[in-house]
Design a protein around this nucleic acid. Structure first.
Lengths: 195, 195
DNA sequence: GTAATTATGTACCTTTTAGTCCACAATTAA
DNA sequence: TTAATTGTGGACTAAAAGGTACATAATTAC
């Protein structure tokens, strides 16, 4: 009963996410977004309401994908190996360009912690879901006597997240893949999670 | 031979640093700065050239102070205790408000990694100086047989920095002092640096 | 007092920002 | 073919951004 859209909403969202991911919220201007998404201004506002709403949607997408990645690994790997697999697939086995984007949740927290508490909260919540995924897997393995219990599952997940956050910052610096790999190996060794 | 300035440059710089520290570069507007610094527009440009130049100066000041703090501790403490002392005085023994500001170098790296590589570089360099300070202290203690050698001094300093970066992200989230303290204690324990 | 010099307050500039408006295009139901 | 509905392009707006210009105020050297 009406004219159909000329663009693929999912693809446009994807393009926006990549841009926000690398540049952050403030530094990404509307013209930047429109060009990357390949749509016109009016279509933008009709489909995504505001820049901030779009950012929120992108952040949710990013967080959900990150969580899905861990849940996927959790079906085939031993819980002890989940952190290493996570670092492999998000830091080591990706292009330098992509590694340089870091983690969108972390970027958001540091950019907007004080300027937009609601977005900080959303990013924090998404990161917490990741931490919970690790903790759940560790807990099961510990209960079946299949994993060291020096730390409780929650404590261990918390430590893994601290390392993760540290690595995300280093990803946005000029650290080489080799340096990052060394840090990953030694950190996991220190936590008793070496391969 | 000329009219004297009506403001204290050092105090104005200090005020600017605090504002940049908490809000970041982009989100701090010129009117914000002028009000916090207590000076007029023309005095601002006469004394600090541009907003970016001022930010650079603030970042240098912040980095130098951070380094000085560690060097100071290094005169009275065992190298093994330096990381703990550092976390105490920058995260645990400060107001919630101040802890929530995190570390200006880390904030800068995540905000400007892609938008301003030169500032990313400066922040990275300042952080590296901190890492070197730790490494130097560790190295001396190891050589005098006074410290564990599971990791080389550089490796250990690198791990401490990773933890540090992770903690700075968590400081900008809503983590309580108690949570942060737990993470600090367990992280240092994992690195063999427990008190 | 006067000249020289530097600081300051105010008005202004250009550019860019996010967001709105509306005429027109394209589609479907009847 | 017509009415109804929704998408799109482009012009537009108001606010805010960083930065400049300049007249005036305050000081020192002489």
């Amino acid at each position: 009963m009406a004219r159909p859209p000329e663009f693929d909403r999912t693809k446009a969202l994807e393009a926006a996410m990549k841009l926000f991911w690398i540049r952050g919220f403030t530094a990404t201007s509307l013209p930047d977004l429109l060009e990357a998404m390949g749509i016109a201004r009016s279509s933008f506002y009709a489909s995504f309401r505001t820049k901030r709403d779009l950012f929120t949607e992108c952040l949710e997408l990013f967080g959900d994908r990150t969580l899905a990645m861990i849940n996927e690994d959790n079906r085939s790997l031993h819980p002890r190996d989940l952190p290493h697999a996570f670092f492999e697939s998000t830091i080591l086995n990706v292009s330098k360009h992509r590694a340089g984007r870091g983690c969108m949740m972390v970027n958001t927290i540091l950019e907007l912690a004080n300027a937009d508490p609601a977005l900080n909260e959303l990013a924090t919540q998404k990161l917490y879901a990741v931490e919970q995924a690790f903790a759940g897997a560790f807990s099961l393995a510990q209960k079946s006597g299949d994993m060291d219990t020096t730390y409780t599952s929650k404590q261990l997940a918390s430590l893994v997240m601290t390392i993760n956050l540290g690595l995300r910052v280093q990803s946005r610096q000029n650290k080489s893949r080799e340096e990052l790999q060394s840090i990953i190996e030694r950190s996991l060794f220190a936590l008793g999670l070496a391969a």
